[in-house]
Design a protein around this nucleic acid. Structure first.
Length: 479
RNA sequence: GCUCCGAUAGUGUAGCACGGCCAAUCAUGCAGGACUCUCACUCCUGCGACUGGGGUUCGAAUCCCCAUCGGAGCACCA
């Protein structure tokens, strides 16, 4: 990451300012990680500010406030301070009143399309030149709720002839008569500030020194600059990043996901197919892997389209040495071995780390993956991993004969024989939930000891053991 | 329609503010190999890029202009 532009001995203050209308996603993680990382480097203050001033269109979700704190903490980015915009309404009202008194804000009663016409024509609307006294009256009525929704809006005067139409007299407050989801706020307010106003006031009040935000908010600085100019404040230093698109998830919106969950398309916010942090956590993705992934990506203004493979590669390196190995046979088919007796197999829990062994009681019947079985022909020789060698004698039913235990036939000779894994006939049933589907099969009994751990199902991938009640439920992380 | 950004290998990045040290960094990916009782890990080797065109200059990935492509804003969303 590039160093920040620091003026003399200033103490860095940065923030992450989400609307808690759903849980944090991988996209949120970028803001959380980058901001908190800078704060760590400069020993500054990291503030979490909930921009929850829209009770209607992007209505906050009560549970999501805690989810944000939870997920930030998990990511190693616990905020030093938490602020809820909905708690600070009086402050916004005070500043709004000051601006009106300065003659820099006015109550506008134009219908939105009508105002757009004036704006596009670089003409002031009829309300722009009302007297301060009249505007103060109107504002008072806005705040107490005398006007209905969409009747009045408070605008900040910028430059109505500004060459960029996006800058001309932007809205600062509008009327929303839907109660706020927070019970302590409820229907206490009807005049709600819009982002550019609320953010401008807060960034100053909280003493923000640096702001990093999306490119889509690039115009905010120009708009908010007027407010800063009127009050004589200094604008924080800003950096922008482009849009981030994850190959595996494509474009998604919090409201879209919410809708899909309500429709039953997903099991919940932590469904393994979802790009939420809680889903990634459930799958066994390490927060450090996400941090590294985001920091490596940096803060370019270029729009990025990245594959999760990079994140998975980071994660794999982090968990490979600590993940115990187990056999899980998906889509199992039974095989019977002749010429041997039940025995006990004790494969190592890890191929290179000294982590002890697991114990599997093996009958003369067991399971192998149908995927492996389909490739077999009579006479094929293969090795059952950590057990013994066999030769196929029948395909339906699948049968084989024991041909010895020695590893020599496996290693020696020009062509090594294939090694496949297997599962005991009395194993436990396992269901793996993965982004690309559900896998049902049989696994070793000892997997039940690994609740909440990430293990590697050999020849399948890394999974986090989520529950072990009647059957084992595992969440797939990656290959 | 008006306005604002951006463009380095398949992907993501470094380099660009102070042109030469860049026949361009690192990671991931892919290919091949070593190791291995996993299609994991580790290690080795290889592949692969400065969007195009002008200009300035002894010299341009770096500066200027144009074009092309991509993104964003002009909400009573954040």
């Amino acid at each position: 990451m590039k160093p920040l532009d620091i003026t003399d001995g200033e103490k860095v203050v940065m923030r992450f300012a989400p609307n808690p209308n759903g849980p944090p996603t991988l996209g949120s993680a970028r803001g959380i990680v980058i901001n908190s990382e800078y704060v760590k480097r400069y020993d500054g203050t990291f503030i979490m500010r909930f921009d929850d001033t829209d009770p209607q269109t992007k209505r906050p979700m009560l549970e999501a406030y805690d989810w944000y704190i939870e997920d930030c903490t998990w990511l190693g980015a616990a905020p030093d301070k938490v602020v809820l915009a909905s708690d600070r309404m009086q402050m916004y009202y005070d500043y709004a009143k000051k601006l009106i008194e300065m003659g820099q804000a006015y109550a506008c009663f134009c219908e939105s399309g009508e105002f757009k016409k004036y704006k596009d024509a670089k003409e002031p609307c009829p309300h722009r030149n009302e007297s301060i006294g009249v505007n103060l009256e109107h504002w008072k009525k806005m705040v107490v709720g005398e006007y209905g929704e969409k009747v009045a809006v408070l605008r900040i005067k910028t430059d109505i002839k500004h060459k960029d139409p996006a800058i001309r007299d932007f809205g600062a407050f509008r009327i929303v008569k839907v109660p706020h989801p927070r019970p302590e706020i409820g229907n206490k307010y009807v005049a709600w500030p819009l982002l550019d106003f609320e953010g401008a006031i807060e960034d100053h009040e909280l003493g923000m020194t640096h702001i990093i935000r999306g490119k889509d908010l690039m115009d905010s600085e120009k708009r908010q600059g007027y407010i800063y100019k009127y009050f004589g404040w200094n604008y924080p230093k800003t950096t922008h990043w482009g849009r981030i698109k994850i190959h595996e998830f494509g474009k998604f919106s919090t409201s879209g996901l919410r809708h899909a969950i309500e429709e039953g398309e997903y099991s919940g916010w932590d469904d393994p197919r979802l790009p939420t942090l809680r889903a990634l956590r459930r799958r066994g993705i390490k927060p450090e892997a996400i941090r590294k992934f985001m920091i490596e990506m940096g803060v370019g203004e270029t729009d990025v389209s990245i594959s999760l493979d990079t994140l998975y590669a980071e994660n794999r390196k982090m968990i490979d040495s600590i993940a115990n190995r187990y056999f899980f046979v998906w889509d199992p088919v039974e095989i019977e071995i002749h010429g041997t007796k039940p025995r006990t197999s004790t494969p190592p829990l890890h191929p290179t780390e000294d982590r002890g062994h697991r114990t599997i009681e093996v009958d003369t019947k067991m399971y192998v993956c149908s995927e492996d079985a389909e490739k077999l022909e009579i006479g094929d020789k293969l090795r059952l991993k950590d057990l013994y060698n066999i030769e196929i004698t029948s395909l339906a039913p699948l049968q084989a004969k024991h041909t010895g235990d020695s590893m020599e036939v496996v290693n020696k000779g020009e062509k090594r024989i294939r090694i496949i894994h297997w599962a005991p006939i009395n194993g436990v049933s396992v269901k793996v939930l993965a982004p690309h589907g559900e896998f049902k099969g049989i696994g070793e009994k000892q997997i039940a000891n690994e609740i909440d751990n990430t293990v590697q199902f050999e020849r399948f991938g890394f999974c986090r053991i989520d529950s072990v009640d009647h059957e084992i439920i595992a969440y797939f992380a990656h290959k």
